[in-house]
Design a binder for these strands. Structure first.
Lengths: 148, 148
DNA sequence: TTGTGTGTCATCATCACTATTACACACTCA
DNA sequence: TGAGTGTGTAATAGTGATGATGACACACAA
């Protein structure tokens, strides 16, 4: 089972905010770009707000803004902000306690699973939203800030 | 979203076969240890058979066996045999093609996501079923082969 | 004061996953 | 050779997470 779409969409949102560079973006505009509903975006923004990655400006002319420079937002920060579940699921019902294997398999596997998760997270920590934004600008042949 | 429970349960199965060391194990016995149904186990064994990790012996006294030494079975092999989905899900509906961000975000993110996946897989490649079996034996204070 | 946009709740449909029943087939053992 | 055992697979159902959607109170800007 994969991660939810939340991670990729959240990076999409933050990249949008990064390229617009200080101009508030409405959830509706972000929803249009991500091809989803505004409420979905607002739900993600709520998590990103809690994580201190974005902030919102209410009222007319308002919208979402980055709470800190895009260079300071690692993809790992985004991942942790929006993903709820453990990377590896274990048995739905715990294995047989009395069995030689069942009673110890989870403890035996735990170190490997932890190492694998940390390896993945270390990779996500190497890239920032600014890196993604720069790559999007390169691919789209425009420069930051972009006027929408 | 996490991986399915299939990965951990499949490792459980293979560890069981490894510690029983050549004695065929019935799907029902494996199901008891994993605390699930025999059909679930048979479904996993079917995938593991296809991947060349196990083989089955039909008829009375039959059951599942490792198709090669436990030292030669990496957790990565198991992972690939039983996990269907991509590690990272992208937008449910593709993002807006015409948008500066929407049209390029997936291409921009793809390298990072690939690196993260490969880092995870590299960790899973370092551990074998024999390693897990040895650890289970250590934790359970028994020696391999185990008589059930 | 009016209008805009956020934040959140509730509801719904969809999908993957696991559990379970059923049964045909292949093989072993007596 | 016949009986019994265990596998392999199909069909079905329940469950939980996810994403989509409508509604509405609240805060803020103009």
């Amino acid at each position: 089972m994969p991660t939810s779409t939340r991670f990729v969409v959240a990076v999409h949102i933050l990249t949008g905010l990064a390229v617009s560079d200080g101009k508030p973006m409405r959830s509706e505009d972000l929803a249009y770009s991500a091809n989803t509903g505004a409420v979905v975006i607002r739900g993600l923004l709520s998590r990103l707000n809690d994580a201190g990655l974005t902030r919102s400006q209410l009222g007319a002319g308002g919208g979402a803004l980055l709470a800190k420079p895009a260079e300071k937002i690692r993809l790992l920060d985004v991942y942790e902000a929006v993903e709820d579940t453990e990377l590896f699921s274990t048995h739905r019902t715990p294995p047989c306690e009395n069995c030689a294997v069942g009673g110890n398999i989870l403890e035996a596997m735990q170190p490997v699973l932890t190492r694998a998760r940390m390896a993945l997270e270390a990779e996500l920590a190497k890239t920032t939203v600014a890196d993604i934004a720069a790559d999007v600008a390169r691919l789209g042949k425009f420069s930051i800030p972009l006027v929408w």
